[in-house]
Nucleic acid binder design. Structure first.
Lengths: 382, 382
DNA sequence: CTGTTAGCGCCTTCAT
DNA sequence: ATGAAGGCGCTAACAG
């Protein structure tokens, strides 16, 4: 209303109106900068693009000052619309509650910041439908590339991306029939390292405890390494236990069955936890069964967690270089975005063994005593 | 090349060509949809905007089918450019390594997904400079609002947002002189709850262990509640210990000094950890000093963590409703974005006490024995 | 070196 | 009920 009275300065008037309508900060545009600096939009655009050799010193200074004075920031949405460079990277995380995902995210975010990209994050909660719709959402913002930690099942949308030659880097798990780059742990090697450590410490009856193997290549890789290492020792027994960590009490049930089967063998029993989620559930299950490590059972876990040193006499772990995985994945993705078309590449980083009390060495004699005790405890408590 | 032979389907051919040129997924545009459906862009736009009552049934069907057939998805960048509704929300996290942040993030992401928004995430690592530049980055993408977990120092950029009436919801910590909404824990009440629990269990010499109080309102609130509750018991002693969790060994040093000061008093010593980061450092420090809880010292921690039940006989905690905090914060932000202009509001949720072994009850007599043991242990190990 | 012109994909008056 | 035209902020030919 006031505006109707005073129309001298249409600029100010517009600004006022916008504020009252839109509430938003009044965006300074490239046009304003150009006008105030007395140059063309193109020159300003060149300045933004860093094409300084195509700009006289005078213009460059002029523009620089004006930008600073006005506090101008180019709109990425507008730049993206025209040039396609949105400087946006989408990250799809299978489960944000998994500490592994967060740790990788940390590295990825750091790499993005380093290279002037911004991360759009979607948590799919291991759900196909949400994975699909998150993909659509990210696509609608024209992300330049995708960091993808897939749930592994029904991956047709991923295949479509592959056909479109869209830049994608897979995290941790790969997908059959897709030729995307992958960054993750060298699972086979790490599992061998883990298994051999357990064997060397004197454990003879080992169970690899994992979540559903179906569709998750990293878990399959760990299993492969585990079985391979076990096969080197015919006198020892190894088996895989699939558990559902969502289902309360399931881990305890499965473990109890395993213990009952093996305890009487007189061997020394150990558990190899397939990831951090499983570790936690195992620790809780053992606690509920009043079993302790390494006294009753050996324990080695994939994923180093903050609390690994704290529980009991410490839990031995295979530490993944999570930060590096995230960081590397982004940098690889950037290379792809910049047009690299070479053949698919897997970047597998090595895990590191951190040995603690939970895998203390045992002699055969001690082992027999342990397994006897284990059997006794189960008999009593079960 | 195959395309040159078969030109029946120009659609397919185009797709091929673009692929080889642009490498990118072929964006279907509103224009293509309009053309193929034999209508105007305006009509398609109306369809997208849900203005069905301004569309004949025939057109509506036509358009719907075409959109489905082409797999058309409107570009949010383009929509945002014109209308300002980018459906983007920025989230600034002070420290992504803090489990609290991740838990809140989880709730926030879920709320965003529910309302069709996408989250742009920036980790500031408690650094002013990064906070500032992340803010700029998010601004350049025209986020509609901001979820802000600030580091608390040098918050001028935040004040600028305030002046611009930009929608912001603060998480956990508020900022002086800013009238932004806040969602977080009722820290005073929670700290009282915690302190009274310790007192009720027979602890008499209590230290609140926190990271730097400076500029972090939530920590100040916890301190206030702590001191208030302590003041109700003149026979007990309470003090605040500020620690630097980044500096190795610092927590242990500070704790040792505190123990030495108090152990000889004959009182029962307990620690109240100000957050999850501190909890971890305390647990590690105690372990390094060969002290255990509740035998040598009582322990109660802010933030329920996955491993809280597992360490020793379990660590008692004050659990924050983190998921709800994140979820609520987004919904409040959405209300602001939709234009709500009412007065500033603080939404403070209640914490919940989870009592475990680390705060087991002690009688005065036991207490004396404990503090004697503590003194002895420190004398020996120190 | 610099500016003019023409869109990017979408929404929004304004006619019809 | 439908469409044509213009513009959001920016970049990218194409002239000078």
């Amino acid at each position: 209303m006031a505006a109707q009275i005073n129309r001298r300065s249409s600029t100010i008037w517009r600004a006022r109106v916008r504020q009252s309508i839109k509430t938003g900060t009044d965006r300074v545009t490239i046009a304003q900068v150009a006008r105030e600096a007395g140059v063309s939009k193109t020159s300003v655009s060149r300045y933004l693009g860093g094409e300084f050799d195509a700009l006289s010193v005078r213009l460059r200074e002029q523009i620089g000052k004006t930008i600073a004075r006005l506090g101008y920031q180019p709109s990425q949405m507008a730049r993206g619309l025209k040039g396609g460079r949105t400087r946006l990277i989408g990250m799809l995380v299978a489960d944000i509650l998994n500490p592994y995902s967060v740790a990788v995210l940390h590295g990825a975010e750091a790499a993005c910041q380093k290279h002037g990209y911004t991360l759009m994050l979607c948590n799919t909660g291991n759900d196909e439908a949400r994975e699909k719709q998150s993909l659509a959402a990210l696509h609608s913002y024209s992300v330049e590339g995708l960091l993808f930690n897939t749930q592994g099942r029904n991956v047709t949308p991923l295949h479509e991306l592959g056909q479109a030659a869209f830049p994608v880097v897979l995290l941790d798990r790969h997908v059959e029939g897709c030729d995307f780059d992958l960054v993750g742990l060298d699972n086979v090697k790490a599992a061998q390292l883990a298994t051999r450590h357990l064997l060397a410490q004197g454990y003879t009856d080992i169970a690899l405890v994992v979540q559903s193997l179906y569709g998750v290549s990293s878990r399959q890789g760990r299993q492969a390494g585990f079985l391979q290492a076990m096969s080197e020792r015919r006198d020892c027994h190894g088996q895989t236990l699939e558990v559902d960590v969502e289902q309360p009490g399931h881990v305890a049930t499965v473990l109890r069955e395993f213990f009952l089967r093996r305890a009487r063998s007189g061997g020394r029993v150990a558990l190899l936890a397939g990831n951090g989620m499983v570790s936690l559930q195992i620790a809780l299950a053992l606690q509920s069964m009043k079993l302790s490590f390494p006294d009753d059972v050996g324990l080695l876990c994939f994923d180093e967690l903050a609390w690994s040193p704290l529980v009991g006499s410490g839990i031995s772990t295979i530490e993944q270089p999570t930060y590096e995985i995230g960081f590397t994945a982004i940098e690889r993705l950037l290379v792809r975005i910049q047009g690299e078309r070479s053949v698919r590449m897997e970047m597998l980083l090595d895990g590191r063994l951190i040995s603690r009390g939970s895998t203390a060495a045992v002699t055969a004699q001690e082992g027999r005593a342990c397994s006897a005790r284990l059997a006794a405890k189960l008999g009593v408590t079960g």
